[in-house]
Every structure is written in structure tokens, then in C-alpha cells.
């Protein structure tokens, strides 16, 4: 009787555990791995009209054939357009990440040092923009930055300028939009990190002769390294592939890879090329970051971070 119950308990225990661990994996397989392999397959397939593809694998007379074409990848490497766009995507994502860090760090620091009773209010203010649609908020910037927009009208009315300053469809307007959109993703992980920091460590640094600035650079910043990394990843990775903001606020000089992808898919109807662009982006950007992340986790495990 009791052995039977324990056996059932064990079964429940074992399968329950598998279910709990398995669910996120299943989710990742469904929404990440499968679509990625579909895209990967498309990128090496051949097609006449760009949309209907020939089978990659054939199975005739007990002979298994795999036909993969790397022609799109070769084209991608030969055409300057793609490489330049990757470069410009990385550049704007880096600029965006750095600006978010410089604005977000003091913000998060201030939040973490504010009285406990104030913190929920400040946290709510940071996440308040999420309450309205992202698209609407990006559109709102057009209203602000247009030649006849609020900022220019105000400046002209004040007499500071005679002609409207060209802000829309420039690198400036796009960067403003990107920083505005991604700032909360920098602030929140930094705040979570900084709020846990033991204030006595700063006092210890002061006590040992480090002034407030020194203590900040020697203790606060190194100890918030994980928050800086987490926030920068959360901003950098989606920034690279950002499509909506460059499309709505950017101009000709802010060509980004998301735009190229869109054009290949919907304007050129070249799905294989679009897929090759997407796969290359994943390899170029995500693999180094994943490796870095893995190194970072290992370093934390060894206690050297």
C-alpha cells in the first residue's frame, strides 16, 4: 500500500518535473527553432519566381539527394549594399545603446537611491509609456519633430530661428525615437541591479579614502556590471533589427537591415535573399552575443565577475 503510493508519487514527481522543465523548451522549439529552420531552409533553396521553391531533398531510387544553393549568400557578400547596411545597423544600435546607458544609468541610480516609498511611483513612471501603443508613440515624434511640428513652431515663435530646422527623416530623429523607445529596457535591469547594492560598500570605499566620484567608479560601476550588460543586450539586440522606427522617423542616410529585409520580402519578392539576410544577421550578431553571455555566466559561476 505505502510502496504503491510512493511509486505513484515518484512517477508524478518525475513527470511533473519533466513537464515544468519541458514547457519552456517546447515553447522555444515552436516559436524560435522551427521558424529559424524554415528561414534557413528558404535561404539555401532555389526558386524561379522567388516565392515557390524546389524541394531541398529528394528521395529517388533509394538515393537521397540534398541540394543546397549558397548563391544568395555569395551575392550578399559581393553587394556593398548589404554589408554597408549591416554596418550602419550595428552603428545605430551601438549609438542607441550608449545613449540609453548614459541617460539610463543616472536615472536608475537615482531611483535606487530614492526613498523606498517613492520607488513604486518612479517605477510606474518608467513603465508608463508602455500603456500606449508603441506605434502611436513613434508617430507622436513626427508631430514633434516635423518642419511644421511643435518644436520648430515653438522655436520660430520664440524667434530663436527663422527657418524650421530639418529634424525629421534624419539620423537625429531616428536616434531620438530609438532612445525614447528603448530607454526603459536599459533602466529596469540597471535599477534591479543597483537597488540590491549594499550601501555599506560605498561607505567602506569612502572610509578608505575614496571620495564620492572615486567610490562610484571603483565600486558602484564594477558591481553593476551585470546590470549594464543585461540592459545593453536588451537595447542592442532589438535595435539592430529595428524596422518601424527607421521606417517612420529615419531618412535615406539611416538605412537599416530591417528595412532591407522588408524590401527583399515584399518589394522584390525574393524570399530566399530575404532569408539569407536574416540568417546572416542572426549569425553575425546573435552568435557573438550568445558566446559572450555564456562566458559571462561561466565567469559568474567561477566568482570572477
Amino acid at each position: 500500500m505505502s510502496t504503491a503510493t510512493t511509486l505513484i508519487d515518484k512517477m508524478v514527481d518525475r513527470w511533473g518535473r519533466r513537464l515544468v522543465i519541458g514547457t519552456p523548451y517546447l515553447y522555444l522549439i515552436l516559436v524560435f527553432s522551427i521558424p529559424f529552420f524554415v528561414v534557413l531552409k528558404l535561404s539555401v533553396s532555389t526558386s524561379n519566381d522567388g516565392i515557390r521553391f524546389e524541394d531541398l531533398t529528394t528521395f529517388n531510387d533509394w538515393v537521397f539527394n540534398l541540394t543546397a544553393s549558397f548563391q544568395k549568400y555569395r551575392f550578399l557578400l559581393q553587394d556593398d549594399l548589404y554589408l554597408n547596411t549591416y554596418g550602419s545597423s550595428l552603428k545605430f544600435a551601438t549609438i542607441n545603446t550608449l545613449i540609453c546607458l548614459f541617460i539610463g544609468y543616472p536615472f536608475a541610480y537615482f531611483m535606487a537611491r530614492s526613498p523606498v516609498s517613492m520607488r513604486p511611483v518612479l517605477l510606474m513612471l518608467v513603465s508608463l509609456p508602455f500603456w500606449t501603443s508603441y506605434l502611436l508613440r513613434v508617430y507622436a515624434w513626427r508631430g514633434l519633430l516635423d518642419d511644421s511640428g511643435t518644436v520648430n513652431s515653438l522655436l520660430i515663435w520664440l524667434g530663436a530661428i527663422d527657418e524650421p530646422i530639418k529634424m525629421m527623416h534624419t539620423a537625429f530623429s531616428m536616434t531620438v525615437g530609438m532612445v525614447y523607445t528603448y530607454l526603459p529596457f536599459m533602466i529596469l535591469p540597471l535599477y534591479a541591479n543597483l537597488v540590491k547594492m549594499d550601501g555599506r560598500l560605498i561607505e567602506a570605499a569612502n572610509d578608505l579614502g575614496a571620495g564620492p566620484m572615486r567610490a562610484f567608479w571603483l565600486v558602484t560601476v564594477p558591481l553593476s556590471k551585470n546590470g549594464i550588460i543585461a540592459g545593453s543586450m536588451l537595447v542592442f539586440i532589438p535595435s539592430v533589427g529595428e524596422y518601424v522606427i527607421p521606417e517612420l522617423l529615419g531618412g535615406p542616410e539611416t538605412l537599416m537591415i530591417g528595412r532591407v529585409l522588408w524590401d527583399e520580402f515584399f518589394a522584390n519578392n525574393d524570399w530566399a535573399m530575404a532569408s539569407a539576410v536574416a540568417v546572416t544577421m542572426v549569425i553575425l550578431i546573435l552568435f557573438p552575443l550568445a558566446l559572450f553571455n555564456k562566458y559571462q555566466t561561466a565567469a559568474v559561476g567561477r566568482g570572477t565577475a
Binding site: 561607505e203 567602506a204 570605499a205 569612502n206 572610509d207 567610490a215 558591481l223
Partner: peptide, 27 residues
């Protein structure tokens, strides 16, 4: 505090977790 010729040993020590023993003492 950083100019006073006195040093404090904090409750639960407040050692810098990102520095080695050597670096802590040299700080």
C-alpha cells in the same frame, strides 16, 4: 569620511566582492 584619519570595520565587513583579498587591502 574619506579625509578622516580613521578607518571602520563594518558589521558583516563590507568587503568589496569584485576585488581579491590583496586588492581589498590595497584599496
Amino acid at each position: 569620511p574619506h579625509q578622516r584619519p580613521m578607518n571602520m570595520m563594518f558589521q558583516s565587513y563590507a568587503l568589496f566582492p569584485h576585488l581579491t583579498v590583496w586588492e581589498n587591502i590595497a584599496f
